[in-house]
Design a binder for these strands. Sequence first.
DNA 1: TGCCTTATGTACCAAACGGTACATTAATAA
DNA 2: TTATTAATGTACCGTTTGGTACATAAGGCA
Lengths: 199, 199
Amino acid sequence: MNTNTSATVGRPRLFDEDAVLAELTALFWRQGYGQTSMADIVDASGVHKPSLYRTFGSKEELFALVLRRYLAERIAMFAQMIELSGPGVAGIQNFLDLFEADAVSERGRDGCLMVMASNELRGVLPGYDFSADYREQMRGQIHLLILQSGEVDGTGVAEARTDLVTAYLLGLNVVMRSTADAAEIHRYVDAMRATVRTW
Amino acid sequence: MNTNTSATVGRPRLFDEDAVLAELTALFWRQGYGQTSMADIVDASGVHKPSLYRTFGSKEELFALVLRRYLAERIAMFAQMIELSGPGVAGIQNFLDLFEADAVSERGRDGCLMVMASNELRGVLPGYDFSADYREQMRGQIHLLILQSGEVDGTGVAEARTDLVTAYLLGLNVVMRSTADAAEIHRYVDAMRATVRTW
DNA sequence: TGCCTTATGTACCAAACGGTACATTAATAA
DNA sequence: TTATTAATGTACCGTTTGGTACATAAGGCA
């Protein structure tokens, strides 16, 4: 296949590979996998079909690529939010503020591509269990947030809080993707704020 | 269209309308909307295409029908679980037991058709915002559970707990649909049990 | 200057898709 | 018995789908 991403020979590529992947990530994120046709992909990317197939492989392979890229980006976003949030239980509240700000943004309304894909495409992409991968990595980030709050690891408390916040955030992503205005999202975030206040 | 569901004249229907809807509910639930073709629907139901179209309308209309039926069933299941759970905070724990038992069952592994559909088909079914409808009704049931636990309405506490449990359960449905064994599901339910213990 | 390699763009493909025309069958009503 | 109504089953429709053949263009290299 196309292992040589920076060939020195032959006609040079007219499009930026990563920029196209970013554009298509947004497209899949908005529309879902099944609702997005190759024609849509051609339109959104401005790249003709044969070039897409030569560069990224089939639609499934392209989507797998998009998912991996998205996963890395999203986990990085979590990591950054957590770092910004700071220590203590107040840090968790700060994290919720940051998460809510993203949730009510235009992109936030689309929820999470990973949550969407794991609902739509369970077991469709061969050889890559992205839903487990995502949940594991996301939970790892939340675990860091909880530990950073001062909770001691290994007692079970930190782990239970981690699981609670993880499941809660997955649910919030469902709410975000469906029709829910900023006020409703705020209500759901406030519910977790109240719980965190008891920690 | 077919308003006359029990016609006395003409050739009688060879299939049971509700049994077919139940079968197709299971099919959509397993596979999702986009991954299910009319050919699949014909195979699963044993009913030929023209009869399906005559009885249920287009694929979209059929799915809308399936969704409404499923929603009523699911809310009824919630209501029954809540009734079985009994009063007090212990009732919430009982509810979590019942929910977990369903979650680890074969059907539970497919998560929730409504959650799946609201992720896959946001705004695709014209004139029926099923995701908002579902969330509202589900939240209403959870609200009953919280009130039944003894929490006083109107103080904001009951409402916050309702929202927390609602979002959490939506997230749990995401976990259930993805690859997660009974042990992992148990861990996530236990996280909520720990929170409820502080109520 | 050619040669080789790779990307591009048009035009096309077979298969699968959702949906339907039409002749047939089976029931009730006159 | 016959007319009417509705459901069935085959066979088919046009469109859209994911995917490709092929000729052309544009670079590096000998």
